[in-house]
Design a protein around this nucleic acid. Structure first.
Length: 472
RNA sequence: GGCGCCGUACCCAAGUGGUAAGGGAGAGGUCUGCAAAACCUUCAUGCACCGGUUCGAAUCCGGUCGGCGCCUCCA
């Protein structure tokens, strides 16, 4: 069965066929490490993780490359504005390299918490300046650049396909540009490849280049590094929807202009935004929603992952604590059912030995994830497995562990009841409570149940005797 | 202004022209000393509204109303 993915370039669902037979080359736009990632940023990385896991589940080998932007990207619009790294540096008194390391570590701690697989290659922009310079040279040799006011620009008029990804109307853009036009530009949509002159000066990260000491333009790193690690043409390029009109549009222009090959990327995939109460999520207004904040409020990172899986990646999703609570409750209910399966002696078996019903459920799951990563449907299959009345506990566990290779909810980390050593204090309290019940001293029994609850043990009196479980 | 999206139950949210997934919350029941859990039952004859196409429309087309995003640092 083929994987179907939505390609932004064509604006439709397409059957995924990699350039190389079973090898997928995937590039994902990574973080700019000048501050913590908010949960909206993280939603996109969860999506990319699901994409990668789905492809791997379907048997592809995935080479996954992600950049870490530790230079460039400016605060203001246009090609001026203050560098974000420099700004944080000024505010904290730390060097830009210290800041980059600190926030890169924080980012990877968050993604690890969310069970997001580490990219095959995570590459730093500052370690690939030579590749970027080489790319600008290629563009220069092919006549796609000009120098003005000390900066090297890409001339979009030398690239007729400019703006196809975003369906830009170039004539409209020319007349209707809202941003202040840089008078050095021949076309308002031209963009800087190499800066030697910044309005803000005092750039602490600069490199020598054929055009003078300076630093690279913002889009260059993704073109240079993706081509270095994945070749001049590759399969999938991902990012947030906000990257369509400028960042990815410019990446395509400079990459295809440099190599003369098209398409540079076969499938473009974009994650929609996670919104907060005020609309677009921001780092500067309202509550700065980080994963650490959610953890501080008592949520497990898997609660947020489950929440993300509840909506489709191409739909905007509204963040609220109410929704996150619903996700947490659902996940805990799932965990509780898994515990009961384990307590019933469930053990994973070979997938090939499954019953017809199990095979059917697994086929549903495979179809759903292969249909443009329909995780909400995949979760409904998860529940169908949990609630099925025909499957044996072992078959259920087998299926759950199997589908969790894609969902990434750490189902295999849910402890079984019998795995837990009940400490002597709790065991004796349980014995005491059973005696109290036999003596019909129910007030004492209820008191002991409350005590056990504070110790993290939940009591259930069943027809076959008193059972306990650890509160998750 | 340009590009695009959305409107489905109390909340979140899938939905590929053919009986409206799932979760959360709620209600009733079985069980129980009481709980909890589990299980059973229940929870949109209808998908913002109005037309149209079709044997058949949440789905396709046109319109109306409402909401949102991007284009401008952010995924």
């Amino acid at each position: 069965m083929p994987v179907t993915l939505y390609n932004t370039m064509e604006r439709k669902l397409e059957e995924f066929i990699p350039i190389e037979d079973r090898q997928v080359r995937l590039y994902c736009c990574g973080p700019t490490v000048y501050n913590y990632a908010h949960v909206g940023n993280l939603r996109t990385y969860v999506f990319e993780d699901i994409l990668r896991r789905t492809l791997e589940y379907y048997g592809y080998s995935v080479r996954h490359v992600m950049n870490v932007t530790d230079v460039g990207h400016l605060v203001g619009d246009g090609d001026d504005g203050e560098d974000k790294m420099e700004k944080t540096s000024k505010e904290t008194g730390k060097s830009v390299y210290e800041i980059a390391d600190f926030y890169a570590d924080a980012f990877f701690a968050d993604t690890a918490d969310l069970n997001i697989l580490t990219p095959t290659v995570a590459c730093r922009a500052t370690e690939h300046i030579d590749d970027m310079i080489a790319l600008v040279k290629r563009l220069e040799e092919r006549g796609h650049t000009y120098t003005a006011g000390g900066n090297v620009y890409f001339s979009i008029d030398t690239f007729p396909a400019y703006g196809r990804l975003a369906r830009l109307d170039l004539e409209e853009l020319r007349s209707g540009a809202r941003i202040e036009v840089d008078s050095n530009k021949r076309n308002p949509k031209d963009f800087v490849l190499w800066f030697t002159r910044s309005k803000f000066g005092n750039q602490s990260m600069t490199w020598d280049s054929p055009w003078g000491v300076g630093y690279p333009g913002w889009h260059l790193e993704c073109s240079a590094m993706s081509m270095r690690y994945l070749g001049e043409q590759f399969d999938i390029h991902c990012g947030g929807t906000d990257h369509i009109p400028v960042h990815h549009t410019n990446e395509i222009a400079q990459s295809e202009a440099a190599t003369g090959k098209s398409p540079w990327v076969k499938y473009w995939m974009h994650a929609e935004f996670l919104l907060d109460e005020s609309g677009k999520m921001s780092k500067s207004k309202g509550e700065f929603l980080t994963l650490s904040l959610l953890k501080k409020k008592g949520y497990d990172p898997m609660d947020f992952r489950y929440f993300c899986l509840g909506g489709h990646y191409r739909s905007q999703l509204q963040f609220s604590y109410r929704s996150l609570d619903a996700a947490r409750t659902a996940r805990l209910n799932m965990s509780s059912r898994v515990q009961e399966l384990l307590a019933a002696g469930a053990e994973p078996v070979e997938v090939v030995a499954l019953s017809d019903r199990a095979v059917e459920l697994r086929a549903d799951f495979i179809e759903q994830i292969g249909h443009d990563l329909n995780m909400p449907r995949a979760l409904s299959t998860l529940w169908a497995i949990l609630k099925d009345t025909v499957l044996s506990p072992s078959e259920k566990i087998t299926l759950l562990y199997d589908i969790d290779k894609v969902l990434g909810l750490r189902i295999d980390k849910i402890p079984s009841l019998t795995d837990e050593e009940l400490d002597e204090e709790c065991a004796s309290l349980i014995r005491e409570r059973e005696e109290a019940r036999r003596a019909k001293n129910y007030s004492r029994a209820d008191e002991l149940r409350d005590i056990l609850k504070t110790l993290g043990i939940e009591i259930k009196d069943t027809p076959s005797g008193t059972k306990w479980k650890k509160i998750l």
